[in-house]
Structures are given as C-alpha cells and as structure tokens.
C-alpha cells in the first residue's frame, strides 16, 4: 500500500509539474505575442531593426511552445521524436532558405519587362 501511495504522489507531482509547465508556457507565449505586436504597431524601432526583433521574438515563441506545450525536451523516451524533429527543422530550413535564395537571385539576374514586377530584389541595369 505504501508503495501505491508513493506512486500516487509521484503521479500527482507529475500532474503539478505538467500544470506548471503549461501555465509558464502560456504566460511566456502571451508575452512573446504582445511584445512584437506593440513594437510593430507603434513602430518602436526602425523598419530594419523591427524585422530582426520580430524574427528573434518569433523564434523564442517557437522554442517556448515546443518546450512547454509539446514537451519535446522532457524525457529520454521521446528520443526518436526529437531526432525526427531536428531532421524536419533541417529540411524546412533548406526548403525555405533555399527557395528564397534562388528566387532572389533569379529576380536579380533576370531582366524583366513586366511593369508589375515590384520585387525590390530586381535592379534594372
């Protein structure tokens, strides 16, 4: 019986930890949503700095949600989940950065006659 109670205590302890994790995650997520929002709405920085700030806060927000909501870093049992996750992040980075890189240079290197091509990357020779 004492063993059972010990187990119960552990489960309730785990429950408390889970709640704490969700509440912490929620508070941080709200904070990391409101800060970039008001920075952008009030034009708190120059445009270039705003872009960097928004990207940085977005990445932080992403990490907060992965750690506190998806609980990816919790235990060794999610070992394979983490490996698949890291692989996916790698592929996503290659896909997005690669697409932007290629398209930017395509715009830059191609003479375009279209009056509607408003890409800033396009510089007429």
């Amino acid at each position: 019986m004492t063993k059972d109670f010990k187990v119960i205590d552990e489960y309730y302890e785990a429950g408390r930890k889970a709640l704490k994790s969700y509440v912490t995650g929620f508070v941080l997520a709200i904070f990391l949503t409101l800060v970039p929002y008001f920075m952008v709405v009030n034009h708190a920085l120059t445009a270039q700095n705003l872009v960097w700030a928004v990207v940085l806060l977005g990445v932080l927000q992403f990490l907060v949600q992965v750690v506190f909501f998806l609980h990816l870093s919790r235990n060794s049992r999610s070992h394979w989940n983490i490996i698949v996750f890291i692989f996916t992040v790698l592929i996503v980075a290659i896909l997005v950065a690669g697409s932007l890189w290629i398209m930017y240079h395509l715009n830059y290197n191609t003479m375009s006659d279209s009056p509607f091509n408003t890409n800033e990357g396009y510089i007429p020779q």
Binding site: P36, V55, G58
Partner: peptide, 23 residues
C-alpha cells in the same frame, strides 16, 4: 500534438504574414 502544432504554425503566420507585413 496536432492542436499545439497548429498553434505553432499560426505563430509563424502571425509573425511572417501579419507582423512583417505591417512593418
């Protein structure tokens, strides 16, 4: 997992589409 994932995707939409768009 699915629901948290959708929330994370939305965070990226919020950042990339709406916040970046408003700068």
């Amino acid at each position: 997992l699915f629901w948290h994932f959708l929330d994370i995707v939305w965070i990226f939409i919020f950042t990339v589409v709406y916040l970046m768009g408003a700068i």
